[in-house]
Amino acid sequence: MSLHVRSLTVGYGRATVLSDFSLDVGSGEFVVVAGPSGCGKSTLLRAVAGLVPFAGSITVAGQAVRGSSRDRALVFQDDGLLPWRTAARNVELPLALQGVPRAQRRARAREWLDRVGLAGFEDHLPRELSGGMRQRVQLARTLAQQPSVVLMDEPFGALDAQTRASMQALVTEVLSGTTTLFVTHDVDEAVLLGDRVVVLGTGEVERRRDAILAAVKA
């Protein structure tokens, strides 16, 4: 499913965080938006997720975005899991909201947890898991939801270098073929993961991956 952002403007109160921003993500493409903190990356994701009001237009598979929907899943940096639900019950949640019968969603949650390497941790509460494991659970939950577009907001920002590397490998593997908009302030991560990298600066800077590669090497 392709995602099109046209002339997007988002403001909180008097401050304009994003102004006249446009972006296209092709079906199955993995696009990374990189930029310093405060440049409006997270706001872009929240607008696409339908969590903040915006001016301009956002369409997913030709449908205009109006409010939040299970079609656009958002993966948070941390604490995106409900702390009173076990890993398996967090993964089940999007299925439960859709009314999938209990036995069926149990089985699906188990499969997805297995897929992200967390077999055996089904009954652990989020506080009993490490930061990397919690992000794996979020990833499993997003996969179980089967959205058209996956939105990831600095999902590995709070992880140590090693865990981060293994999570990046996992994401590349499980999200290949899924339309993904990934936000990070880490240029290396952007270059590593993205089919295409968009740099969001103080102005409306939009450059191709090569430009960043050159900057990294310099």
Partner: peptide, 26 residues
């Protein structure tokens, strides 16, 4: 924390679902 509500909203939760799945337990 608003993040929990945001999370279930982007899973397609309705307002009653937000109430019973997030607000009351939280």
């Amino acid at each position: 924390p608003t993040i929990w509500e945001d999370a279930v909203r982007t899973m397609g939760a309705s307002t009653p679902q937000v109430l019973f799945r997030v607000v009351l337990p939280g």
